[in-house]
Design a protein around this nucleic acid. Structure first.
Lengths: 252, 252
DNA sequence: CGAGCGCTTGAAATTGCTCAATGTTAGTGG
DNA sequence: CCACTAACATTGAGCAATTTCAAGCGCTCG
């Protein structure tokens, strides 16, 4: 078990705040009143950016804080005992990471920056005392964990039932939706992760990812240039993913 | 969206209680004081047993309660939009199910009895008010969700990185450990689920499960007769699973 | 400008799947 | 208690999807 390589740099002045953060409607403060948000804001630490490839925390490190992504993106992965790495999620701005370690005393996974990334650190002890007083915050935390569980169960379905094309289509749709929720284009974006990361996440070989991307491009489903992706036919992509676009089917 | 076929039968007299339940050290009451346990016990409803094949709740049903398995076993599964079913977990006595629906308002999965099963029902509203007052209970719930997340992430690793033999070996070890924790034999047990369920859970074809079981039997790793399983070489099974038996490797 | 990493493409190999047939078990009703 | 049926389980053969191996390209960063 190694010690944390990077972790939590000291504070700097001129900090942003939850109250003015453009992400507060997506992030942990969601559903908090102004005064409650202020109390949450008080315990949040905002450190210097972490660079691409640096670790935010490592599997086995003592569980001390949860983190909200402010800008940038990270991947989280677990290590099998044989050393193999399984990426369990990519995390964009406003998303909370680290909660899975809540009960264990240490992080059950490693978080690595995919690009230069800034995070808000929320020390767990203070968060815990705060949740004692703020039921809304508590619910929000439970909600976040529920979301995580549903995500993982969707991934189980994907990994055990879907073929390569369905996996890639599902992946692109997921990313697209997440960018959209953040106010970015749902059809034109830049993937923060490498092909190798995607292949690992989707349980496929890199070569397969490459081939599916080119096939999608030939079939004019998407246009892609390196990490840049333009979705040309969202409708069809939903079909490929084994899903149905929301437009035409709202009942569940 | 269909209505619930079975759900929550009426109460009966002569109920057992958390205080005297042999599972209370594994179940939700874990870490509660006697008086707190009593308060939890007061809100628990204990219905008549549900029969093999009956549903406890169904994907889409309104989220009203979480359930603890008292005796028997269930499977939970999600339905893909194309109707395919993915089993996300098997649940033995003392295990809590339904929490994943916490934030969504309705259950994100279906729970079906694998055999005659009795459950303790915990209405969510009352549980919520109780958590307001009992921080220990709150923590226990968070812990349970954390455990669920780690389980699912382990499954993601299994589904995306392990071959058929490794999957089956991992599965048998997991079941074995869970029986052991409940005070049963870790080397001789009866699987409550069918081969089809196992294959679905592990992301393999039924035939593959069958073949791996016979191969394991030929290699004298296990002895099996239908759902009855005897583990002959635990050591080797751990190796096959890509794990290391606790005996020989305690670090990490 | 060269090295190296990341990405793409092709051909061969492999693993697990599908299909089909047969065997086995458990539950039902005469 | 036995016969019957339906669901479950096993086994074999051929096949298909994806992986592995190998090679080449192109961008980026020292």
């Amino acid at each position: 078990m190694k010690t944390t390589p990077v972790a939590h740099p000291p504070l700097r002045g001129n900090q942003p705040h939850c109250q003015t953060c453009s992400l507060n409607a997506l992030c942990l403060p969601l559903s908090l009143s102004d005064s409650d948000m202020e109390r949450l804001d008080d315990i949040i630490r905002r450190g210097r950016p972490i660079q691409k490839g640096q670790l935010l925390f490592q599997q086995g490190d003592e569980f001390q804080s949860v983190f909200a992504v402010r800008t940038g993106a990270l991947k989280t992965y677990t290590l099998a005992s044989n050393g193999e790495e399984q990426i369990t999620g990519f995390h964009l701005a406003s998303e909370l990471i680290g909660l899975a370690g809540y009960d264990a005393g240490n992080y059950p996974l490693t978080a690595k920056a995919l690009e230069t990334t800034t995070v808000c650190e929320i020390p767990i002890h203070q968060l815990e005392s705060l949740t004692d007083e703020l039921p809304d915050l508590r619910k929000q935390l439970m909600r976040t964990m529920g979301t995580e569980i549903r995500h993982d169960q969707n991934m189980m379905l994907l990994l055990s039932k879907k073929n390569a094309e369905e996996r890639v289509a599902s992946f692109l749709i997921d990313i697209s939706n997440r960018y959209q929720r953040r106010g970015f284009s749902s059809s034109h974006f830049r993937l923060p992760m490498s092909r190798v990361d995607i292949s690992n996440y989707l349980g496929l070989a890199v070569e397969t990812i490459s081939r599916v991307f080119t096939r999608f491009q030939k079939n004019e489903l998407i246009d892609t240039q390196g990490k840049e992706v333009i979705i040309l036919d969202m409708e069809k992509l939903y079909e490929m993913a084994g899903l149905v676009s929301e437009d035409e089917c709202e009942h569940k």
